[in-house]
């Protein structure tokens, strides 16, 4: 009788142990998700690069005042490094910066995008509901001037890094 009780007892406490181990692991094993913060900081960094004190950065224009944008020198001019840890083979960042005139805020006068284009659908999917396993997106928009001209600048920054931020 005692032996039977012992067997059942240990079966019960084994189940309890498994449940406790699972719960503790789930609680403490989940990594901190900082992707939204990172995407926000990236958007701010790009915004600081494109416009300073309310004026569009002069390096985006040629000597005649025409917008020439970046010539594959974005990382150098903005001081941004988009390389990531070796565990990923493709870029974990994407961003888009569009310059719109105030008359037409749908078609950009100039836009620049770089990073992993495959991350864009993550933003579309998450417009209604957020999914942890998808990349995090942050959109910013602000106005800036260049001489007489006014621009609406839209920035979209996306950070994936799912493996390091989601269990």
């Amino acid at each position: 009788m005692d032996k039977t009780i012992s067997i059942y007892w240990f079966a019960i406490i084994t189940l309890v142990a498994i449940a406790i181990v699972y719960m503790v692991s789930a609680f403490y094993g989940a990594p901190y998700d900082i992707r939204a913060n990172e995407a926000g900081l990236l958007a701010n960094r790009v915004a600081d690069c494109l416009s300073q004190k309310g004026e569009v950065s002069s390096f985006l224009f040629d000597s005649e005042g025409n917008m020439i944008g970046f010539n594959n020198d974005f990382e150098e001019k903005c001081g941004i490094v988009l390389s990531v840890e070796e565990i990923w083979t493709e870029s974990q960042y994407y961003f888009y910066a569009g310059f719109f005139s105030l008359e037409d805020t749908q078609n950009p006068n100039y836009f620049y995008e770089t990073g992993n284009l495959n991350l864009i659908p993550s933003c579309e999917v998450q417009k209604d509901k957020e999914f942890d396993n998808l990349a995090k997106c942050v959109e910013k928009r602000f106005y800036s001037t260049s001489g007489e001209k006014q621009y609406l600048i839209k920035i979209l920054s996306v950070v994936r890094k799912t493996e390091k931020n989601v269990k």
Partner: peptide
């Protein structure tokens, strides 16, 4: 534990 940053400083 390692984590990358994008700021080129």
């Amino acid at each position: 534990y390692s984590y990358s940053f994008f700021n080129g400083v």
